[in-house]
């Protein structure tokens, strides 16, 4: 939480990025507490490792200082707090935290938990669901990663050919 507020306040983007790495590690430990070990591992590796490096690389391409806030902050603050209050009001209809007979535990999850070993011989149910029961879903995600990679390569390649053209700096 404190880290989040610091991220909101800080203007030096280098510090913001370092803090977002810290934030990712804290998030990973929270996810550990929620029993999501696979997700925590991914968050620690992705959030603290790869995305920090990518943000720093992008920062190297641009400027590292954010300008002081040029616009009035009241309207966004009101909007954000309003949305937050509405969402908090909405959470009171959710089932209480951690109880075993919430609707989410009654749908397909028991089937996965009871039949994963019998049907797939895989003890880690997350892997079984990821690659077997919901493999179409995962296939879509892999294609999204692929497409994003292709998009970045298209955007960032071939500077030398573009530089001579009159596309860039206008007088």
């Amino acid at each position: 939480m404190i880290v989040t507020i610091a991220i909101v306040r800080m203007r030096n983007l280098f510090g913001v990025i370092a803090l977002s790495g810290v934030y990712s590690f804290l998030m990973a430990s929270v996810l550990m507490v929620y029993d999501a070990v696979d997700v925590a591992m991914t968050e620690a590796a992705v959030g603290a490792g790869v995305s920090t490096v990518l943000l720093l690389a992008a920062l190297h391409l641009t400027k590292s200082l954010e300008y002081p806030m040029p616009r009035p902050a009241a309207v966004p603050l009101i909007v954000a707090v309003g949305v937050g209050l509405a969402l908090i009001w909405a959470t009171y209809d959710l089932p209480a935290f951690g109880i075993a007979d919430a609707p989410i535990h009654k749908h397909v999850a028991p089937h996965y938990l009871q039949n994963a070993i019998k049907e797939t011989q895989v003890a880690n149910v997350v892997s079984a669901v990821l690659a077997d029961y919901r493999s179409f879903d995962t296939f879509g995600e892999v294609i999204v990663v692929f497409t994003a990679g292709i998009g970045v390569m298209l955007l960032l390649k071939g500077r030398r050919t573009r530089r001579d053209g009159s596309q860039g700096e206008t007088p």
């Binding site: 490096v53 797939t120 690659a131 990663v145 990679g149 970045v152 390649k157």
Partner: peptide, 24 residues
């Protein structure tokens, strides 16, 4: 099948991340 699919995921994710880093 799960092993094969995970291998595909590994190859795509690892090479995409490295390619992103090279591009930047």
């Amino acid at each position: 099948g799960i092993l094969l699919v995970e291998a595909g995921v590994l190859v795509t994710v690892a090479s995409t991340m490295i390619a992103l880093f090279y591009a930047f």
